[in-house]
Design a protein around this nucleic acid. Structure first.
Lengths: 109, 109
DNA sequence: CTCGCCTATCGTAAATCAACGATAAAGGAA
DNA sequence: TTCCTTTATCGTTGATTTACGATAGGCGAG
């Protein structure tokens, strides 16, 4: 992946080339998901425990339940985590595929 | 680094434990630096060319000069890039150390 | 069915971001 | 010195984020 070596143009000759770079947008979106301390902690927590009910995550953070729920929604939309309804509770876990995608993006830099 | 395996507490027993996690904040700050498509493109550009004058970066992006300068400032503050004055121009380059720090953070997840 | 628990969503307010044009500062060329 | 180029900063506007409390919806227990 990333055949960047063949795109070594002067860059000043084609300014429009970088106008729409879907890769950069995907990357930025994924990076943005972990661009907040609370979300970093949530991701770490889920990686360390494999699965965690929403209420426990709320207890781990000094934030209101609604705020945590909002962060969880952001992480879910990025694909980094998944939520599974378990009765009245919701069990969250990491989505390894997206986590690998993030790692591949960063390591590809 | 990361002795997370010893911190496998129930988490609900110590809610204040995660209140101030400097690591998470550092991580989030670094991730936030690349949480915008334009900044991703700038970083990639600098990695692929080793050094680049500000004006060239401006020509590569569909953004105003002042906007690009603002993104460069953000990247500089994150430590990911460095700017060296070269006469009337400014030459930007990647800071490998911070880039490695970012990779270590992500790979440590 | 009714109650209580858990979670998501709504509405709101303050703060921050992103983008631009205009302008200032610094350095080289003539 | 004066002009031109290059870059950073200022000031502003609109959009987005973040945080909270209040509220609604879903589900199991009794």
């Amino acid at each position: 992946m990333a055949k960047r070596s063949s795109t070594k143009k002067t860059c000043s000759s084609e300014p429009a080339k970088l106008t729409a770079d879907p890769t950069a947008e995907d990357f930025a979106k994924l990076a943005w998901a972990i661009a907040h301390p609370a979300r970093v902690q949530i991701v770490r927590l889920l990686i360390g425990r494999e699965a965690c009910v929403c209420g426990e995550i709320v207890n781990c953070l000094p934030l209101a339940q609604s705020t945590v729920s909002q962060h969880l929604k952001i992480l879910k939309e990025s694909g980094l985590i998944q939520g599974e309804v378990d009765g009245p509770k919701v069990c969250y876990c990491i989505n390894p595929k997206q986590l690998e995608k993030l790692k591949a993006f960063v390591n590809g830099l």
